[in-house]
Design a protein around this nucleic acid. Structure first.
Length: 262
DNA sequence: AGTACCACCTGACGGC
DNA sequence: TGCCGTCAGGTGGTAC
């Protein structure tokens, strides 16, 4: 699930719960989730410190530790955060649990283990090393989209989902953006004229902002959002036609063939 | 460079 | 009820 809007909501959640609290202990139940850091280093970096601030780039959440680098969280397909009192009923797939002195903890839960937990000196360094593109919401103006369109080739949907070109958009929100912009996901990016690039850019900003506003919860999103109709045999909220499920590079995509003509 | 496909994991769901 | 195949919103590697 976690794409840019979801991770932004996690960030706000962490800000509202776990910030500025003394860390007492770190429980790591699945070492596999760690990336580029050892169990002991993770524990040493966190212990006796506090989470001072957060930042997000694409689907990565960064948490600054007082005087000691940044914790990095990536959520894969099934990760999420939960802050609760330690004696409350435990979640089923907690991979990292950070205990605070106040008796509460922040749990990183991730059933499928496809995410990553790491430590980095600072977000900029990680973003650079990973060669991530600009954040789709914070750093992606119309000019950058035009640059991307003039430089590259390929299907629009693949471009939107490429983290090295634009960071933060995944399968669900690329479908949503293309649906709102009325553009077919197989459109060649080089074939987009100025007016459609403009439309696409507006749709990106609108969809991502609106999704965050709705706390990344499809139920709260406008009825005109495709995300509420991601199943077979459903109807386009705009024209009433049949929503189609197609495969693009092995990923499931939902489109309205009438609104999104090639 | 782009694309298709597989692998990594586990859980949910539909069909039998 | 239970077993089995299929699929899932991410990413990275492979071969073409």
């Amino acid at each position: 699930m976690p794409e840019l809007p979801d991770v932004e909501v996690f960030r706000e959640y962490l800000n509202a719960t776990a910030l500025h609290k003394k860390i007492e202990k770190v429980h790591l139940t699945k070492e596999r989730i760690l990336k580029g850091v050892s169990r002991t280093t993770l524990s040493r970096r966190l212990k006796h410190r506090e989470m001072a601030e957060t930042s997000r780039h694409g689907k990565h959440l960064f948490v600054k530790l007082t005087d000691n680098g940044w914790l990095r969280l990536h959520f894969g397909m099934t990760g999420f955060l939960r802050y609760y009192k330690r004696d409350d009923k435990a979640l089923s797939h907690v991979r990292v649990q950070i205990d605070f002195a106040n008796g509460y903890c922040l749990a990183y839960d991730n059933p499928r283990l496809l995410g990553q937990v790491g430590i980095t000196a600072n977000p900029a360094e990680f973003i650079d090393n990973a060669a991530l593109g600009p954040d789709a919401l914070k750093d992606f103006d119309l000019e950058r989209l035009k640059e991307l369109a003039s430089g590259g080739r390929g299907m629009l949907k693949s471009t939107l989902m490429s983290q090295k070109k634009i960071a933060g958009i995944g399968n669900v929100y690329s479908d949503e953006i293309l649906f709102q912009a009325k553009i077919n996901p197989r459109t060649e990016i080089a074939d987009l004229g100025q007016s459609r690039l403009d439309t696409l850019h507006n749709a990106m900003q609108y969809v991502l902002k609106k999704a965050i506003e709705c706390r990344a919860d499809p139920q709260r999103m406008p009825a005109a959002f495709l995300i509420r109709h991601r199943k077979e045999d459903s109807h386009c909220p705009r024209c009433g036609g049949d929503i189609k499920k197609i495969k693009i590079s092995g990923r499931t995509s939902y489109i309205c063939p009438d609104c999104q003509k090639l």
